[in-house]
Design a protein around this nucleic acid. Sequence first.
DNA 1: ATTAGGG
DNA 2: CCCTAAT
Length: 601
Amino acid sequence: MVFKRKFDSVSVAFDYPNIPKAPRSCRRKVLEKRTDAMDLLASLAGKLLEECESSSASSNAFEGNNHENFGKEIKQEDDQGNSVSRPTAYEKTCVVNSFSFPDDGILERTPVCETKNVKSEGVSEEAGDVIVNTGCGQVEATGGLVTDTCNLENATALGVQFPKSVSVDGDLKSPSCVNGSLARQGNHTNLGRDDDEKLYSYQKFSNKFKSYRSPTVRRIRKSLSSKYWKQMAKDLGHYRADVGMKALYRKRKSCYGYNAWQRETVYKRIRSPDRSSVVTSDGGISSGSVSKLPEKRDSVKLSIKSFRIPELFIEVPETATVGSLKRTVMEAVSVLLSGGIRVGVVVHGKKVRDDKKTLSQTGISCEENLTNLGFTLEPGSSKVPVPLCSEDPVVPINPPNLSERSAASPMLDTETPQADDVTNPGNIVDNNHLELVPYQREISVDEEPSSDTRALVPLPALEVEALAVVPLNQKPKRTELAQRRTRRPFSVTEVEALVQAVEELGTGRWRDVKLRAFESADHRTYVDLKDKWKTLVHTASISPQQRRGEPVPQELLDRVLRAYGYWSQRQGKHQGRGGGGGAHKDPDMNRGRALEAGVSV
DNA sequence: ATTAGGG
DNA sequence: CCCTAAT
């Protein structure tokens, strides 16, 4: 704390305000480039919509008059200044949104895209390609993976299935999963410090997965928090172009919609839990139907017939091997499982939020109810959704791990496993719900999930999302070359570590920062850290309303500014390298003490 | 290999 | 995050 105070005092004197280069938040260029594509896209979208509409009888997913505005909406969004993440032309992008875990070895057909009307288009910002995915028509999920299925017509049909063993048995229980679901209930972890242990096991676990990583893997995008995804959703219209889109745009930058997660409803058959420990089998992904099997009276048995995972964006070059595709999917799934999901329980269409209630109290023990027992998938924690709404600057209370980790690549991080809804169910969880609820409605076919049993059934609308994006304009060139790394938003925990390190080491020794705080985080290079710091400084200097992504605790941002000011001030001076161990031997540090201004954090 | 900055 | 220039 001494250290902190020093900074405090320093900051008082330091004229922080004049921050260097104002980060550019808008990318004109991009917008310009995209203009053409957007126009084209808009028109295509319109046509597509009309066609689909007329050819499909079940258009209940539509909100009626959205069509007309479709194109406009897109453009509008475009004008918002959002940059776009697009699939590279030569890559194939597939969206995997469902995995089957057949109980009996029989592939369960995963209706990816029934007769839904979907108009999605994607734009490749750079190439200006327009990608149109038709959701019209039915798609039959195939059981096996076919490499060359990634073309416009087939991509949608690409099916992935999980061996039964993986699912129910909980073999996939990753540290985070464990923490994330049931196991976590009684164990309120404070993410702050004692993460070490968890960290270790976590890392250990992570390493297992690292082996799965293939250099050829191009890009995996989880629908979660990634900005990419958000963009995707928007640009592709992908997400519920029909229904949710409008709302989505309405909310605009404040809330991105990638609801696939939030509302993956599933049903399952429950088969084994005993009282308070509700099966772990629900690793989280989705569901099947639930039915009670005659057993002991005081126990509830459920068997999960199948899970559906939220969408996954996977991009691999056409030249990729089946093996690499598998690895890619594996990685995506691993990441997904490790952090991002939370299971919701729905009984009779009503969501049961009180985790402390017993099953019997909830009515789950009744056989009849099992029929109406459903599970939903939601973002692991505060993942993406929460952060986005600028309107209600809800101060994240225990945000630390929860939120972040789920974001992107838990598996590979050094970080702490996120503790899902841990202790503060009240706040965060509720907030999430508030945010999520609106979406759910828009997405789901039924209006009131709470009163409609249908909520237990997989929402058809969601299935529509199983779209695959295939760039029309192939660009064989730098095929194997640099693919952008998968985006991995820094978790709050990471930010904390970064800030801590910078406070101690200064802003010009990224290499050291890396070694000190991210040595085991292979995916965080010192450049990444430097970049992150850059953005942190920026973030800290703008109003909370302008911030995006998962919120970083103000406390941390304050520290960022102080450290920034402190180290800027002493620029030129020897950067107090001093002894190992990062002790602050610099005299200035002590000087600060006396000043002790009352900067409260 | 690192650092610093623009993109 | 990527890319480059400069160390």
